[in-house]
Design a protein around this nucleic acid. Structure first.
Lengths: 130, 130
DNA sequence: TTAATTTTTGTTATAATATAACATAATGTA
DNA sequence: TACATTATGTTATATTATAACAAAAATTAA
């Protein structure tokens, strides 16, 4: 069975909204914005978010409980994310650094664990906020 | 002014509890456990947790909203954490890998951002769960 | 060693984030 | 068509975290 290509109505509405923002959005701010389109309950939002995360269309910024669109079409990226976060202005940027990704993908610990996913968040001050 | 060395009563109680567990504990499970010691409100727990995170005695596992003791005494480590998380049994282990730390510490993006902290979480299946 | 300052505590209330449980509708597949 | 799967709608509730205020304890400085 292949990965689903077409999104449902709610999923589309919510993905659209997230893609229009270049910064992460929080679930309840999404809910507020989509109420005019008939999405009224948190669960409707969370269900769409779960699905969109699952298929790699968006990522969750774990330290911020917020969701950002993935610009990269390679679905692999859903399982291997790197973000930089400005602790002053809260600007978030997804990082695609081949060497870093390579390093992380190849990382082996000494516990014999099999990794299939990672999430890395860098924190600091962006150029504007330094 | 140097970093505080002595912990307050609440901070000690909560650190003790977290250190006795080799796995991350959630705030409200901590609250439940310390009620017998007279800590009655969520805020008392969260305040102690905030402080303990700040001074590097514990780390927050962001993807799990849980807190784990830091075994490593170097305070630098508070700002540079790597964990492996088993998605089946939820076992969490802090990783200290010199080469990986080096690589992450030296990472520069192309945005001119100045990093002072990072958090990396690897997900997969541990040896027992494979 | 007092006075000022900072840190920690205690407390009540509430905000913000997320899921359970159930019924129904839409979609895809054999 | 029948079956299975996925998505929806809805109400209620669980979980995680902070606001706001008052007071006590510890620290620092004069």
């Amino acid at each position: 069975m292949q990965k689903q290509e077409t999104l449902s109505r709610n999923q589309k509405i919510i993905l659209d909204l997230i893609e229009k923002s270049d910064q992460p959005l929080k679930a309840y701010s999404i809910l507020f914005d989509v109420k005019k389109k008939g999405i009224n309950a948190p669960l409707q939002v969370y269900r769409a978010l779960d699905k969109l995360v699952e298929i790699g269309k968006i990522h969750k910024i774990e330290s911020r409980n917020a969701f950002i669109a993935c610009k990269n079409s390679k679905c692999q990226i859903a399982k291997a994310t790197v973000f930089s976060i400005c602790e002053s202005c809260e600007d978030v940027t997804e990082i695609h650094d081949h060497k870093l990704s390579e390093h992380l993908r190849n990382f082996k610990d000494n516990k014999g664990m099999k990794y299939n996913k990672y999430n890395l968040e860098f924190f600091g001050l962006c150029k504007k906020c330094i």
